[in-house]
Design a protein around this nucleic acid. Sequence first.
RNA 1: AGAGGCGUGGCAGAGUGGUCGAAUGCGGCGGUCUUGAAAACCGUUGUACCGCGAGGUACCGGGGGUUCGAAUCCCUCCGCCUCUGCCA
Length: 426
Amino acid sequence: MLQVVAIREQFESYVEGLNKRGIQNASDILNELLKIDDQRKSTQQSLEEILSESNQSAKIIGQLLKEGKKEEAESAKAKTSELKQQSKALGESLSALEEELKSKLYNVPNIPHSSVPAGKNAEDNEVVKLEDSSIPQLNEGAKPHWDLIEEYDIIDFGLGNKITGAGFPVYKKEGARMVRAMINYFLDQALEAGYQEVQPPILINEDSGYGTGQLPDKEGQMYQAMDTNMYLIPTAEVPITNLYRDVIIEENQLPVKNVGYTPCFRREAGSWGSHVRGLNRLHQFDKVEIVQVTTPDKSYETLEQMVGHVEKLVASLGLPYRILRLCGGDMGFTSALTYDFEVYSAAQQKWLEVSSVSNFETYQANRLKLRIKDKNGKKVLAHTLNGSALAIPRILAAILENNQTESEIHIPQVLHRYTGFESIKK
RNA sequence: AGAGGCGUGGCAGAGUGGUCGAAUGCGGCGGUCUUGAAAACCGUUGUACCGCGAGGUACCGGGGGUUCGAAUCCCUCCGCCUCUGCCA
């Protein structure tokens, strides 16, 4: 969440930033926050005065009792009781104000970076790179992946339907081995790029949900484990970034670079139709995620480096891709700048999002209380970043469609040593 | 899952109702000594919020309560340890 101090100091640019997201009454919203904060301060001041007074008199009472002056002590007690009534009332209004401030702050999204284009939706995203020379010319009878997986019998939606429900596919034979191969390939590539591998829990508690911003605004997107306050993770970002909740990192330990593979679970409420057919949108899917924690002055450099890593992965698979800089209206709630990667899936003739790389600046760190201590002992909020590297099902869909022939599907060369086969045959 | 025990500053470890934000040791930082280092000695060393400042307030796992006053008493939740049970 945003810091009130920062809102105060950079009011105008924050208003502009929120406008880019399509929030028109931004200055009203921010002014309201400042007003509540002012009330909070003055309430806190009066409360602390009273507490100070009653602390003093408690000490005096102790002294009096020690000296055996019982009656004086009793009358002092009576007075102090009055103070207590006052402080109780003030304490209650203080915490009410704090609650109000916090819940309002939770509902204000991050301020977009200056390079973020204004815009309403996906149509206003800016294409920063287009690599489409590898778009294949498919034969007449080329099939979308949902037909191919049946033909080659490598993914079974019907079975998934039976044991769980729609959106939970069962990968079989070469399909299952492809998934495993890609996970290993992506992890190995990240290790080579200097990331440390972690395997986090895939069930998280509420604190973690708030820490990275899934709660309270995206509660409906997550599956909740019945009779518990735990949620299935929608992305490894949540547990991996929350590793650093309530942590102070020494500056010389930076950057923190973690990579993790996890399944991801998304309810995706309200999405039906042909555009979500097959592997395009699932309730459970596999993803390798990279997460970095770094200093404010280096985070945009880090973002470029992460984008470079993802680009290398996509390119190595021989898939046509493009990189988008998301506009204010399409960007995630907590992000300051997001690049999306899309690969072209030639049979359905669609660009599919396979990665999203974001800099959250201090937005998550403020919720997480994740700080950096520099050489002089000064503490500042860290910057957090993450990116998919990569999400597996749509990559698989594009490979299946783009590499199909009449009788087989070719597997990208970099995966051969992981799959143990070079093509999928009927 | 049941029974019992425990949860104090970076770590170890005192403190069981009244100047306790908290003894002591280790570690860290600064200094004296030394050619340099070690040892020794001296000093210093938590976080957050409010305030221009002096200063104030809160925090001894989390939340609530009793009391003029709580690290200390009570309730509750969480976590850890031990024993029993179960189990990949």
